[in-house]
Design a protein around this nucleic acid. Structure first.
Lengths: 189, 189
DNA sequence: AAATCAAGGAACGTCTACGTTCCCTATTTA
DNA sequence: TAAATAGGGAACGTAGACGTTCCTTGATTT
């Protein structure tokens, strides 16, 4: 499929030059095709880059929610799929998206709608199941506690360019999130 | 000073077009000068952008560490200066830096050396004073607990483009960091 | 098997931005 | 006060990328 070749070429181009520095000519060369083929599908280079972003993120969306019967394992598994995706191309896309969103706020909204909210819904479900099982006290959850592991992962990615390993992910859950969820004071201020 | 005018113009240019999309011609126009004046000081547009980054960050470095006598207030104050700087131009710079660093790892290192480490040293000092005062138990500190508030601030910035307000900063410290520091289990895994 | 049609690939003109060079002006020094 | 020097601003050539058009090739249908 030529579309796949174009996406792969565009991803490589973006990885090397960024979204603003990407060139249709080079992307066509990378994909082993001509520019006209690209312009027949996308009106300009920005639209192509955006399509690459969205498609990459769509493909990275986990098809089903984990339900291991343990809140701890649910969270570890969910985070692990996230970090795994960051390793395979999504990391560079995410970092490019951050600067693009700084100039185009609608990107933030779309990203939030497609990824932030689904992830949050998924996590809330896991928390409710844990409450029903009596794993954590039944009380309102601090939304910042829920964001905490993802925030640490993203923070490490943007600061050092590396992605936390499995041991660190487990540490986030066991040493930070679960203690906060178990203590009665971790409610909305 | 022309240098200041150029920096202001370059910052506006970067805010609008990003580092990769910045143009020397437009920056010169914004600064009310000619291109030759810019090329006499910087070899190319990338070097200028990098200089703007570094200078903005340098200017954003707090000259002195807070020592209020209370760990809680030390942390709140330190975080507040950080969020305040993010509001005034540093936010857009930081987000541009993230994507630039994705293509040039040496940027990550330089950023870490100039900002991450000093901030960490500052925080360690505050924690040691708090231990000496008996505010928190004297035990090894989980480094991720220290990163936690900055991670939440950065995470919110890159996701929504907004910066946490004072109430949220206080919430991070009071509801997340301090409880984790007080419990004996919050040591390095 | 032949003809039609759709799609890929190369060549073209235009425009923008780069980096340089030249000229002018203002300031400083003798 | 006059000359010299340094620095700011405009004009210039060049290169690369955009977006378009045309030609060729391969697949599909009758």
């Amino acid at each position: 499929m030529l579309r796949d070749a174009v996406f792969a070429g565009a991803l490589a181009e973006i990885a090397e030059f960024g979204v603003r520095g990407a060139s249709m000519d080079r992307i066509a060369k990378r994909a082993g095709t001509g520019k006209a083929a690209l312009y027949r599908r996308w009106p300009n280079v920005r639209a192509l880059a955006l399509d690459v972003f969205i498609s990459t993120m769509e493909a990275a969306l986990p098809p089903s929610l984990p339900d291991t019967g343990s809140l701890r394992d649910d969270m570890v598994e969910s985070l692990t799929t996230f970090t795994t995706q960051l390793h395979s191309g999504l990391g560079i896309v995410l970092r490019e998206l951050i600067s693009e969103a700084a100039h185009d706020p609608s990107l933030s909204e779309e990203f939030q709608t497609r990824f932030g909210l689904p992830k949050q819904v998924e996590l809330i479900g896991a928390l409710q199941r844990a409450m029903a099982r009596g794993e954590i006290p039944t009380q309102p959850i601090d939304p910042y506690v829920m964001q905490l592991p993802a925030a640490l992962v993203v923070h490490q990615l943007v600061l050092t360019g590396t992605v936390p390993g499995h041991a660190e992910v487990e540490h986030f859950v066991d040493a930070l999130v679960l203690p906060l969820l178990r203590q009665p004071a971790a409610v909305i201020a």
